[in-house]
């Protein structure tokens, strides 16, 4: 039971890493390609790579959703309720992320659509799972993010934490004058968020493995 979902987490983290490598390769190759030709005549490896990336992204997203809502494990009624809560969490979290980002310096006039898109992504990655996991907002706050009981909620909390921290760190790349394509406004933040998400999964996975083993040893 314990190992069941931790394997899923591991797999998902690996997929996320694959996703992470895409923007760099993609951008680099495209930049070289566009000069020569239009993008329809990309070489086969690039096209395959892109396909793999899209598939990884799709499976990754579906993992998140299924995992967060517990769609597979719980009965249909509760599942519907959880999905609703998921959507509710997204809807509540996204404006918060948008406003916070603007308060911290995100563009709010010319690239407002991109900022909004990023806020939506963050809402899906952070707000949705939290909303789905917590029956009410009160429970979300108690216990705090990093001091709750272990288990599946720990996974959700840690991912949320990693997501926020990753997006925060991604912001440092934006103002640098490297003029690289991956510095486009929300891209580093999205990459950071995804990386933090998978790092959070890793952390919980390791924690489960080691703490569990150690704990058993102590008890014995």
């Amino acid at each position: 039971m314990q190992h069941d979902w931790s394997v899923v987490v591991l797999l998902e983290a690996l997929l996320a890493l694959l996703v992470l490598t895409i923007p760099a390769l993609w951008e680099g190759r495209d930049a070289a390609m566009i000069e020569v030709n239009d993008s329809t005549r990309l070489p086969l490896p690039t096209r395959l790579w892109r396909l793999a990336g899209i598939m990884a992204l799709a499976s990754y997203t579906s993992t998140i959703v299924t995992h967060a809502t517990g769609f597979l494990e719980i009965g249909p009624n509760e599942a519907r309720e959880q999905s609703l809560r998921f959507v509710g969490g997204v809807l509540i979290a996204a404006p918060y992320f948008f406003l916070s980002a603007v308060a911290l310096g995100a563009p709010w006039k010319e690239m407002v659509d991109r900022t909004a898109a990023w806020a939506l992504i963050m809402g899906i990655l952070v707000g949705g799972p939290l909303g789905a996991a917590a029956p009410s907002l009160q429970q979300l706050r108690l216990p705090p993010l990093w001091q709750g009981p272990p288990g599946e909620t720990a996974l959700i909390r840690f991912r949320a934490l990693g997501c926020c921290a990753g997006a925060w760190m991604g912001a440092f790349v934006v103002p640098l004058d490297w003029a690289m394509p991956f510095q486009e406004w929300p891209l580093p933040l999205v990459v950071g968020a995804v990386a933090g998400h998978s790092l959070g999964s890793f952390a919980v996975y390791c924690d489960q493995r080691w703490t569990h083993a150690k704990g058993v040893g102590h008890v014995d």
Binding site: A103, L104, G105, R141, P143, Q147
Partner: peptide, 22 residues
């Protein structure tokens, strides 16, 4: 400055809420 100051403030807010929770 705004970014780092805002981040610190957000940290304070998290501390405030979580500490009371503790």
């Amino acid at each position: 400055h705004l970014f780092l100051g805002g981040s610190t403030a957000a940290l304070l807010w998290v501390l405030r809420t979580t500490k009371q929770a503790v």
